[in-house]
Design a protein around this nucleic acid. Structure first.
Length: 137
DNA sequence: GCCAACGTTGGC
DNA sequence: GCCAACGTTGGC
């Protein structure tokens, strides 16, 4: 089982939208590295949702419920989407500033490779993030 | 296949 | 809104 961070602009689709919808198709990714990561996701993997506009912070946890398939918003056949469902809201959202202060998290792609919108999170760092946010899932 | 030019993203 | 960093494109 793997862990991920997926980024979104809340004006486009926020965690609150997902809470209302319960599940959604995570589409619109237009970056090859991010797409490759989407393709590596397995059913049952967990991901944290990051809001990249407004307060820049991790806000919630979701589960991958359908593995990569052709992005319905793309007609070139290049891009992929997955389906996710809402699992939990972080008890304490984790701001980018907080995350950057933690030595254990300095290698997170969220910090090192800011533009990558779908990124793998190593297990230890995943647990660290959950602890920091005081969230039980 | 390289590299310059251009476009886009994201942090501040 | 600016700018640096990164990705993508296209000419050679």
């Amino acid at each position: 089982m793997s862990f991920w961070i997926i980024k979104t602009e809340p004006s486009t689709y926020s965690l609150d939208d997902l809470i209302q919808d319960k599940t959604t198709c995570w589409d619109g990714v237009r970056n090859y590295q991010a797409r490759n990561n989407l393709s590596l996701m397995k059913k049952g993997d967990l991901a944290m949702v990051y809001h990249s506009v407004g307060p820049k912070e991790l806000v919630g946890v979701v589960e991958i419920i359908k593995e990569a398939y052709p992005d319905p918003t793309d007609h070139t056949g290049i891009w992929k989407a997955v389906d996710i469902k809402f699992i939990a809201k972080l008890k304490k959202p984790l701001t980018l500033a907080q995350i950057k202060q933690e030595k254990q998290l300095e290698n997170l792609s969220l910090v090192k490779q800011g533009r990558l919108s779908v990124a793998l999170v190593p297990n230890t760092q995943w647990r660290f993030l959950l602890n920091m946010s005081e969230t039980k899932i």
